[in-house]
Design a protein around this nucleic acid. Structure first.
Lengths: 255, 255
DNA sequence: ATTGTGTAAACTGTCAGACGAATAGCAATT
DNA sequence: AATTGCTATTCGTCTGACAGTTTACACAAT
């Protein structure tokens, strides 16, 4: 009596019994495929929910559930009102950054990961980001960094904008690396680790970090990857010694 | 006449006009908050949809839409049937890995990012992963690596399991780093870059990479981070020169 | 010519109620 | 002990309706 399941590795592929796909799942899969295969392009408008319900021979709530899933993934955007509908979205690497940030935010809240883990991984990626930025930056990139520097120079350490400007500085460098995944990950990691918030920020530390930022920008200006790597490494090492302990953290704190 | 909007940075916080929250959004936010604040614990069962509809004074489809959003985020799991319902899930860093993998998969399909970007970032993270694994590995970790090595030794380069065993090898090392974010990111980056699939895999290359894997494991066994870093760097450098060009890729290919 | 107001149309958001599908638990039968 | 049948409880899907939102257009007022 031959076995009715074909054995493949550790799992069995049934000959007869296939897992049925529920209506909502079929609709969701079909629409996602249309988007990912390029059959639907960015900006294209999907038919109205009532029309999709007619085309797929399902009820409108089933369509709604499938569309909501695609919206959660960022593949479409829903617009109410006349001229509304579901529109295919331009999905780029910033969607990855946001999805990572949101997921890490939840995990931090749940205690599944720690700030230290976030901060350490951020540092692993900031070094190559600066190095690549030195190689790949444009003139406009450089101007932008210099403007950020000028804005930082105008601030004292008690200004609430200091943390935001620092974030913009590092996130911009990652963007200028030319590697979009690096940019997305550094964005998310930076936003979730909030390094400046945990820094013991005296006026002296403010001056030191500003000088280090200037060295980083100079290396990027000179398009010198080695100098950029050295400058960012020095900056991160300096900061590592000046972190207040996290209140909820039992381990040695790092930024 | 004072302005009715309080200006804060580039955005305005209205004094009077606040963006209204739709019923579904309120329900979703309330349930998410209950999970993230620890009011609901892993394994807890939420009330039935009809009961939640009664408690929130909304219709059941509205509850369903809110629950579906939470399920998309991995915060709950829905179970049909008697004894079913919505259960709070244990969310750990593997959820981050999956979310990143899915997002990157879509972005690759859409052409928003390239394989090279994925592969390069993976390499940036594999070096510290091996280094940390040398420091933080347990005896069980080491046994697992040695078992993976033994399994790899049994395979010839045309065996379809070679790619999977290589993936397991690298992903396991990242897990042994003890940094959960690193583990999650390396998992996703490895799964999406599929390095072995793009390798020009001759028997000689197979032997060389196996020897390199053995050096990596030896360094991890000795708990020597410097040796682990050197071994993984050598391995990645070796592989970088032996990649077939990506079919859809215009740039120089790397792994 | 420009601005403001009202209306209609077209879409999504939500509601109410019903039935189908899936599942666990329990009792009866073999 | 294993199998089958039944019941209750939940989620999944359906139908139909109304509410809310938005755009476009027509018309009146300036």
């Amino acid at each position: 009596m031959p076995e009715l399941n074909r054995v493949n590795g550790g799992t069995s592929t049934p000959i007869l019994g296939r897992k049925v796909l529920r209506p909502r799942q079929q609709v969701e899969d079909a629409l996602r495929k249309a988007v990912l295969d390029g059959q639907l392009r960015t900006g294209d408008r999907l038919p109205a929910e009532t029309e999709l319900a007619r085309q797929f021979s399902v009820s409108r709530p089933t369509i709604r559930e499938a569309l909501s899933a695609l919206e959660s993934q960022g593949l479409i955007r829903k617009v109410p009102g006349a001229g509304g509908g579901s529109f295919v979205q331009a999905v780029d690497h910033t969607a990855l950054g946001q999805v990572v940030q949101e997921s890490m935010h939840n995990l931090l809240r749940l205690g599944s990961i720690s700030f230290d883990e976030v901060a350490i991984v951020r540092q692993y990626l900031e070094v190559p980001a600066a190095t690549l930025a030195a190689t790949n930056r444009t003139d406009e990139d450089l101007e932008e960094l210099q403007e950020l520097l000028a804005e930082q120079k105008r601030r004292t350490v008690d200004d609430p904008m200091v943390a935001e400007l620092d974030a913009q500085f590092h996130i911009s460098i990652a963007r200028m690396s030319g590697n979009r995944i690096l940019a997305a990950l550094v964005y998310a990691l930076h936003r979730e680790s909030e390094p400046v918030s945990y820094l013991d920020l005296s006026p002296e530390v403010g001056r030191d970090t500003f000088a280090q930022h200037r060295h980083i920008v100079a290396a990027i200006a000179e398009q010198d990857p080695g100098a950029a790597e050295a400058a960012i490494t020095e900056h991160l090492t300096y900061l590592r010694g000046r972190i207040r302990k996290h209140i909820s953290n039992q381990d040695a704190a790092t930024v």
